[in-house]
Amino acid sequence: MPSPSFAHLTDRALIRLSGPDTHHFLQNLVTADLKTIDRTGAGSAALLTPQGKILFDFLIYKAGDAYLLDAPATAAQDLIKRLALYRLRAKVDLEPLAGETGVFAIWDGTAETPGAMLTVADPRLPALGLRSVGPVSMSTELAARQADIAAYDAHRISLGVPEGLKDYDYSDIFPHDADLDQLNGVSFSKGCFVGQEVVSRVQHRSTARKRFIPVESSSALAEKGTSVTAAGKSVGTLGSSAPVDGGTIGLALLRLDKVAQAKENGSPLQCGDAELQARLPDWAEFNWPEPTTAD
């Protein structure tokens, strides 16, 4: 049996939050329930705009008396600034972790993580594997096959799990669009958080019409943001993609009702010159809606 794979996710950064008010501070801000994270050790979350759109997405780890946010490296400083704006008089310290501490993904099996600060199951989806935080020197000590970020992204895309900035821009879409409600990224029982009213309304009225779902093509796919069409009309946009087995897999934010209508009409999905096949991910609790021509 082949050994598991791991990748040092150098495109991720860690932010440490500590202090006596940290739990309460995060509980009132982010979409995840900190009580669950305290119990399980990890969670998926987002910080939303007051209008309910995703401003930042990240993973949260419980690390002793502190919490670590695992966020896109290019957004980390902006996230710290935003959290500082909300902090006011709360006794919370915010600091980026030094560059010698890294984030590692381990998939297709488990591996020993010598010297790790923490190792947890990815809270979004068990099939994603493990997430580990530790010294960058772990790269030479892990009993697993070293891979690169592109290999990990291909694994993530194949499972249908979108990520901020790789698949969508911040402040553009709602948590249901990014499947956060399906991937343990939103608590609907913990009470208020920024943007909670909008997200709860979508949940209780079952009005989520767009979703990121996996797509496949025998051709190379265009860049993120390219329109996906059916019968010449837009039905969504492409997110990230990766080559695999002579073809390409990707994620696309699609109007499910319009895709269902295209399927019924026999109209193929197009993205540039490539024809796409769309499917629902295995973990989805949503189904194809009844076909409709409504906008």
Rank of each mutant, 00 (worst) to 15 (best):
L79H: 07
I80K: 02
Y86R: 04
R87F: 01
L88C: 03
R89T: 08
A90H: 05
K91W: 03
K91L: 09
K91T: 09
V92M: 05
V92C: 07
L94I: 04
P96S: 14
P96G: 06
L97Y: 05
L97I: 06
A98P: 07
A98Q: 13
G99T: 10
E100K: 13
T101G: 00
V103M: 06
V103T: 04
V103S: 03
A105Y: 08
I106D: 05
W107Q: 08
W107R: 05
W107L: 00
D108H: 13
G109L: 11
G109M: 12
T110F: 01
A111N: 00
A111V: 10
E112M: 12
T113N: 01
P114Y: 04
G115F: 13
A116F: 12
A116N: 11
A116Q: 14
M117H: 14
M117V: 14
L118Q: 14
T119L: 10
T119M: 06
A121H: 02
D122H: 01
D122L: 02
L125G: 07
L128T: 10
L130C: 08
R131W: 01
R131N: 11
S132F: 10
S132D: 00
S132L: 08
V133L: 14
V133A: 10
G134Y: 03
P135F: 02
S137L: 11
S137M: 02
M138S: 11
S139T: 15
T140S: 15
E141F: 03
E141I: 08
L142C: 12
L142P: 07
A143E: 14
A143P: 03
A144F: 13
A144V: 12
A144L: 12
R145Y: 06
A147M: 14
D148Y: 07
A150Q: 13
A151Q: 07
A151W: 09
A154W: 03
H155S: 13
H155T: 08
R156T: 12
R156N: 09
S158P: 12
S158R: 15
S158D: 15
L159Q: 13
G160K: 01
G160V: 05
V161I: 15
G164F: 04
G164T: 07
L165A: 05
K166Y: 07
D167K: 13
D169P: 02
Y170L: 13
D172C: 07
D172I: 04
I173P: 03
F174T: 06
P175K: 04
H176P: 00
D177L: 05
D177C: 11
A178G: 10
D179Q: 01
D179N: 15
D179V: 12
D181T: 01
D181Y: 03
Q182C: 10
Q182H: 10
K190I: 00
G191S: 08
G191C: 01
G191T: 00
G191Q: 09
C192Y: 06
C192S: 04
